Computed example of a mutant assay.
Amino acid sequence: MTSMSSSTTVSPYNVPNLLTSIRFILAVGVIAFIAMSWFGTALVTFVIAASTDWMDGYYARRYGQVTKLGRIFDPFVDKIIVCGAFTSLVEISGSGVAAWMAIIVIGRELLVTSLRGMVEGAGGDFSASQLGKWKMVLQCVAIGFTLLCLALQTPEPWLVWVTMGTLWGAILLTVYSGIDYVIIASRVMTSETPAK
């Protein structure tokens, strides 16, 4: 029995966690490139990091390499990519990203992380919702367009309008998804039956 259980243990040193580690390095690169005003490089790096987000999760599920480390590390890196980019863009003149926007994004992530820990600690299920996933997509689109406008320096008016539209849409969806998670968490906790 001991040998069988040890043989099915998945090592945290696997391909999915390696891919997540690479995305973490790319996320740090995005933050550094924005700080250095290398907006074109930041855009390319961000697109690579954001577009490969699905790879580690797909590989882990496809080949049975899901680990506790991966379940924590992957969403953590997602938050670093988005929150880091928003925070860095606040300091850039003409980015359109205000400090309160970054605070909303970061605050929502802290709230949802706390709710997830509370619900799953009580034995409930608090998996990411479709609304939360679309929130992530719209945030990435907004960051991408913002970096593109900064890289072009004098973007076309329509591009500026699209960028501002996606940015405000991302903030509104961030708030809405945060409220949705609070409602879900309250329902799960109130319907939770204590274990006997």
Rank of each mutant, 00 (worst) to 15 (best):
T2Q: 10
S5E: 14
S5R: 14
S6V: 14
T9V: 06
Y13S: 02
N14T: 03
P16F: 10
L18C: 03
S21Y: 10
I22Y: 14
R23M: 10
R23P: 00
R23I: 08
I25D: 03
L26A: 09
A27W: 05
V28M: 09
A32T: 10
I34T: 04
W38Q: 14
F39Q: 01
F39I: 00
G40W: 04
G40V: 01
A42K: 01
A42Y: 01
V44E: 03
T45G: 04
F46E: 04
I48K: 03
S51C: 15
T52A: 13
M55C: 09
D56V: 11
Y58M: 05
A60Y: 07
Y63H: 11
K68D: 10
L69I: 02
G70Y: 13
G70S: 08
R71S: 09
I72Y: 07
F73P: 01
F73A: 03
V77R: 04
V77A: 05
I80H: 09
I81D: 02
C83P: 00
T87C: 07
E91G: 00
G96N: 07
A99L: 15
A99S: 14
I104Y: 02
I106W: 10
G107D: 01
R116F: 07
R116M: 05
M118V: 12
G121F: 06
D125L: 05
D125P: 00
S129W: 13
Q130I: 12
W134C: 08
L138E: 05
T146M: 08
L147Q: 14
V160K: 09
T163S: 13
M164H: 11
M164W: 11
M164R: 09
G165Y: 11
L167F: 04
W168G: 06
G169W: 05
V175A: 15
I179L: 12
A185D: 05
V188S: 08
M189N: 02
P194N: 12
A195L: 15
K196I: 11
